[in-house]
């Protein structure tokens, strides 16, 4: 039972993380490989504020979301001036810069040792050390975020974001400020990634840089691509499917040194197969006007 609850909590965290990636990547085709860095910033902000300053749950969540959001403006400021392939490399450099900082800024992040002993949230005199109670917290937050994002997907903002992915100049011609729209989409997706990071830090109680590596980014990418970029329901289903998929591997007798790479290989294979099957229509072809 404890195991099922654990999986449910993971799913609720990943639902927030992947659906927020789905905004900028799925709708806007902004290949933001620094999404995992926003996630890391949220987690580290929570870890540091909760352990060093003793901040409460709400303060930590708000600070994490704000810091991740502000970080995204930095990415947006630099990367949105770049065309598609430069953009991917630019965000990749951002993500690498953040993980290099996490590893090396030892006075703040304790480097590869990570930050242990992050206390679970405390409010309403509920015992969140009980995983079931924590599941209610993370699950309700995930549902809340999904409702907000679902509403966001129906707005003119989402349509403008989609339009600029298909043709930037045509969207501009319709008096749409594409740069502003991209930046706002970054801010939103990054802030929610920060929320996911915050929940992750609270749940696991311990974070280290390896949880926020490029491998994690590949996982997020696999989920979003499998669910079809830009599809709200698809992303949710893919999150459930892909988080649960490697779990049976746990019950096969294998050394942990092999288990990790096996999981990685499984996700990479799925990513490739999905892209191969849908290669004709997975990303809208840029239209020239």
């Amino acid at each position: 039972m404890e195991y099922v609850i654990h999986l449910c909590i993971l799913i609720s965290i990943y639902l927030i993380l992947t659906q927020s990636f789905n905004i900028s990547f799925g709708l806007g085709l902004l290949f933001n490989l620094a999404h995992v860095a926003s996630y890391a910033i949220g987690a580290y902000a929570t870890a540091l504020f909760a352990t060093e300053l003793g901040a409460n749950f709400f303060e930590c969540v708000v600070v994490s979301m704000l810091l991740s959001g502000l970080f995204s403006l930095l990415i947006g400021g630099i990367s949105l001036r770049l065309e598609q392939d430069y953009f991917a490399v630019g965000t990749l450099a951002f993500s690498a810069l953040v993980s290099a900082l996490l590893i090396n800024w030892k006075s703040l992040t304790r480097g590869v040792l990570g930050i242990p002993g992050i206390p679970r949230p405390e409010f309403l005199s509920i015992d969140f050390y009980n995983n079931l109670n924590f599941l209610f917290l993370s699950g309700s937050l995930a549902i809340f975020v999904l409702i907000i994002l679902y509403l966001l997907f129906q707005t003119p903002f989402a349509r403008a974001l989609k339009a600029q992915a298909e043709s930037e100049s045509a969207t501009k011609a319709l008096a749409c400020n594409t740069a502003l729209i991209c930046n706002v989409s970054f801010f939103i997706s990054s802030a929610f990634a920060g929320l996911a990071g915050s929940l992750y830090a609270y749940y696991i109680n311990y974070i280290d840089p390896s949880s926020f590596s490029l491998t994690e980014m590949v996982f997020i990418l696999t989920i979003t691509v499998t669910g079809r970029p830009g599809s709200f329901i698809g992303c949710i289903l893919a999150t459930f499917f892909l988080v649960l998929l490697p779990e049976p591997l746990r019950f096969i007798d294998m050394s942990p040194g092999i288990l990790g790479p096996m999981r990685q290989a499984l996700y990479a294979t799925i990513l490739f197969v999905v892209v191969y099957i849908n290669r004709r229509n997975i990303f809208p072809v840029k239209r020239s006007v």
Partner: peptide
């Protein structure tokens, strides 16, 4: 088709090589 595709598939290939 799209520049994204080959970038995504080579990410998959790199991950496969690393895990192999």
């Amino acid at each position: 088709f799209s520049f994204f595709l080959a970038f995504v598939t080579t990410i998959a290939l790199g991950t496969l090589l690393e895990s192999a």
